[in-house]
């Protein structure tokens, strides 16, 4: 099923939002002092990358 205009727009926005989040997490990771928080950010970063791949796979 082809994407509607609305779906395409939202998909693009979600991709941009998720990508920005990935960049922020990667940036923050190097600044964090608490190992516990760093571990959380590592997890989030991993999930974030997966989301980008998942969303991007719907762009054909």
């Amino acid at each position: 099923m082809p994407l509607s205009q609305t779906e395409a727009w939202y998909l693009g926005e979600c991709l941009k939002g998720e990508t920005l989040m990935c960049k922020k997490l990667a940036n923050y990771r190097d600044q964090i002092q608490d190992p516990g928080l760093r571990q959380i950010v590592d997890d989030l970063l991993s999930t974030c990358r997966r989301h980008v791949d998942l969303l991007a796979s719907h762009v054909r």
Binding site: M1, L3, E7, L11, E13, C14
Partner: peptide, 15 residues
């Protein structure tokens, strides 16, 4: 603001 409205507006079941 991204995913909640996107879900509500999506017609494509896979998406």
């Amino acid at each position: 603001y991204y995913y909640a409205p996107a879900i509500l507006e999506s017609q494509n079941p896979e998406l």
